[in-house]
Design a protein around this nucleic acid. Structure first.
Lengths: 217, 217
DNA sequence: TAGATTGTTAATCGATTAACAATC
DNA sequence: TAGATTGTTAATCGATTAACAATC
């Protein structure tokens, strides 16, 4: 055991891991049996030392001069992220964004399967979206309890988000993937991951202004 | 002038700014004429010192004991982000995610207006999505040049993303908002903001494993 | 063997937090 | 006036990068 397992993994590192996974999968498909961090770093415009340190978290060791066994590293990353066992999730809010997520093929590669969709709007209930029939909100809590699902996805308008979060928590959801711009109040034992478009757009705006020389003040 | 305008703004700060904006707008609507960083920080579970330092970037000064004038601070943030003047953008990839973005009402509050949508699929061309008619790819470059739009949004499958980026660059796009998981090669004068679902999901997975006590190794 | 690569320890860098004087 | 709040300077913390020994 190389790393101190009591310290939790640094967030910046965790966020880079999926990019490593994508590159490694590509290289594996191209028949590359071993891979060096120099190579991975170059493909992602990163520092090789950083890549090495990040990948050390998986517990997979490389060999000097040789590098890492591609397949071993891929398996190590799946283990690290817990993506080797597919986890079920429920989605609430079957609007445009919810529909997009329900139709997204890539989640199977990320160990996620959205098993059910719910919505408050009568117009959407009963509609089949990419193989899942939209269910009414008053069935949400019993569904979560019965199927023991632990991940909830929120794609409702901001004013409805907190109420959905309350229902999630009451029913036993432990991880919330929040696509609404609303900050959610949840108890300590529940984790929230916010996907905030406005933060990304703010960064794009500022980087763009800097690049264009139009200091935005 | 308080801050050194030559140093570019720290990314973590820029990403927090929209959250401040949302809180301040809410408070303004509730009739709160002045606001303290203590109050803003509490509502976002942040450190007041950090909020104060972040908001200093806008150049707006507060007054001891009083706080900041809410409206002034809001205006300052709009200025800082360059969101006071709405910027036009083109979107390529009119699938589920593209449709969701085309239908998103919130962008007007972020100074963004998606003026046109393009797609390579004959099935989608001509379709009216939230008021914009999907155009064929061979009209993309001329459209960008004619309308002088500077922001491009990519919501195509990963294998098509780089080619779209090339077309964007040739036509004069300066900022790319990339929703595909593909790393894009672009020249120095073009900025790219990646919205990567897999990074967010990786963080949720790891945080969840830590919380559930199932050390994922 | 020589050179490339790993992996650890140390140094640097940048962001966050603390301390505190100024002030309404 | 006293207390709350700003805003600056200093200290701390954590992540990135550099240096370098080990090794295939």
């Amino acid at each position: 055991m190389t790393s101190d397992s009591s310290r939790s993994a640094p967030h910046p590192t965790v966020k880079r891991i999926p990019a490593y996974l994508a590159v490694l999968k590509e290289l594996e498909e191209a028949g590359q049996v071993t891979v060096s961090t120099t190579d991975v770093a170059r493909r992602l415009s990163l520092n090789p030392i950083q890549v090495r340190k990040d990948l050390a978290l998986t517990g997979i060791a490389g060999r000097p001069k040789i590098g890492y066994v591609t397949a071993e590293l891929i398996a190590g990353i799946y283990d690290f992220l817990g993506w080797q066992n597919t986890k079920d999730a429920v989605l609430v809010g079957a609007g445009a964004l919810g529909t997009a997520l329900l139709g997204y093929k890539g989640f199977s590669g990320y160990g996620l399967r959205i098993t059910a969709a719910f919505d408050a709007g009568k117009r959407l209930i009963g509609k089949n979206i990419h193989g899942r029939v939209v269910q009414p909100m008053d069935e949400l809590e019993s569904f979560i309890k019965e199927t023991n699902v632990r991940i909830g996805i929120i794609t409702v308008p901001p004013e409805a988000a907190q109420e959905v979060a309350y229902q999630f928590v009451r029913a036993g959801i432990r991880g919330i993937w929040n696509f609404s711009p609303e900050k959610l109040a949840v108890p300590d034992q529940v984790v929230v991951q916010n996907e905030d478009l406005s933060a990304g757009l703010a960064l794009l705006s500022v980087k763009l202004s800097e690049k264009l020389g139009t200091t935005p003040v």
